[in-house]
Write a protein that binds this DNA or RNA. Sequence first.
DNA 1: TTTTGAGTTGTTCGA
DNA 2: GTCGAACAACTCAAA
Length: 471
Amino acid sequence: MKRIIHWFRRDLRLHDNTALHEASRRGAELVPVFILEEALSAGVDVGAARLAFLLKSVEALRLELRRAGYNLVVRKGKSDELIPALCRETGASAVFCNKRYEPYTVRRDERIAQKLSTMGVEFHRLKDSVIWENREILTQSGTPYTVFTPYSKAWKSRAVPAPLPSLPPETQSSTVYQSDEVPLDPWIFGHRLNHPVTAGGEVEALKLWQSFLAGPIHHYEEQRNFPSINGTSKLSPHLRCGNIGIRRMVIDILKARTASNPMQAKNCDVFLSELIWREFYTQILSNFPHVMRHNFRREYDALAWSDNEEHFQAWCVGQTGYPIVDAAMRCLNQTGWMHNRLRMIVAMFLTKDLLLHWQRGERYFMQKLTDGDMAANNGGWQWSSGTGTDAAPYFRIFNPTTQGQKFDPQGKFIGQWVPELVSLDEKMIHLPWENPLLASRLKYTQPIVLHEKQRPKCLAMYAAIKVSKSS
DNA sequence: TTTTGAGTTGTTCGA
DNA sequence: GTCGAACAACTCAAA
């Protein structure tokens, strides 16, 4: 019997899966494979939360595959060695997988392609995780877009492909390729996690999606900005693992849009544009790989960042003395998730108040976020620090106090994560230092910097770049 | 080639 | 308290 491997990566689902669908139509025995990359154990940029969620999702995938009559082969090691080895072991004549776009995964896939080609094994990398990939949406002059709005216009002007059918059940289960099971336990990589793991897997993702479509989507534009309201989809970790397909989501949103009144249509538009942001930054990372190590705008490589370790540590643990910033960071540390509004606030605070390099924040986020995605995370940080595509104007500096008052008006979110402040009323909880007598009795740190002092310093730091550029 | 319009998410100041 | 303007100049994308 001929065999074909489907290599699961960030596509841990049976529905709407391009490469899996193609592989299953070849009339060969399908051998589903997942590889626990050894790089995951290196630890520095692989957070325990993300790894644990990934493993939960793989476990769920294994279960779903078994129900359909397949046995997921799980191996631990280096995929550029294991994939060719598995081909020899199973006698597979082809390997299917869905494309990834990070520069380092592209290089790795290229190495695998070369090895498989010398073995006479086909290697198919198909577009799946995005609707439109790096070279598909270009300006009239054939270059990638670097400004979001025109990009999104071009994106929206195209017809979105329909979701694909699910993997059909295996009919000749007797020939299913068997293999030893590797335990899907984050401990095998020596990671420690001190908080519960979000439920993973395709079934869970679809459940979340349905409940978002049934409620929060109708108030999305307004409520998505408030951390104490459950107004967002919470799908980011699932999207990252491919527990849900992007075609499914976009088609559902477009359907909801046509079925609703103009007000609700606006909510659908806003959510859709968040999905387009995801593709925008995926495309940016792929077309401008230098953003991995540099500012998108290279002239900002000359910015004179601070190197204050104490400030950085205070930011990490949520001890800056700014309530909304500390609440956000503690929430991240204790749950592996942070609301998008808060990501902007803490990013602005790190870069524009503490004047620390955005790359430090980028790396910390990748260590802690369950949904940490290289493209979106890098894009977000570069946007916040004003060094990226279509970046925030240099004078757009968030005031952490005002942001707290605006987006957590009753201090509900702050009270939840900064217990030292929970007794304060909705006014004082945003500026506990205002009343020195009260502040001295609280077990809460004084602000480590003064926003009013840091703002002009930040403006000067950026202005120095302009001077040196023009001179 | 040149020109034109526009650009995720804000803050501050003064009327 | 509320509102509008200034913050500055630059680059991108399309006409």
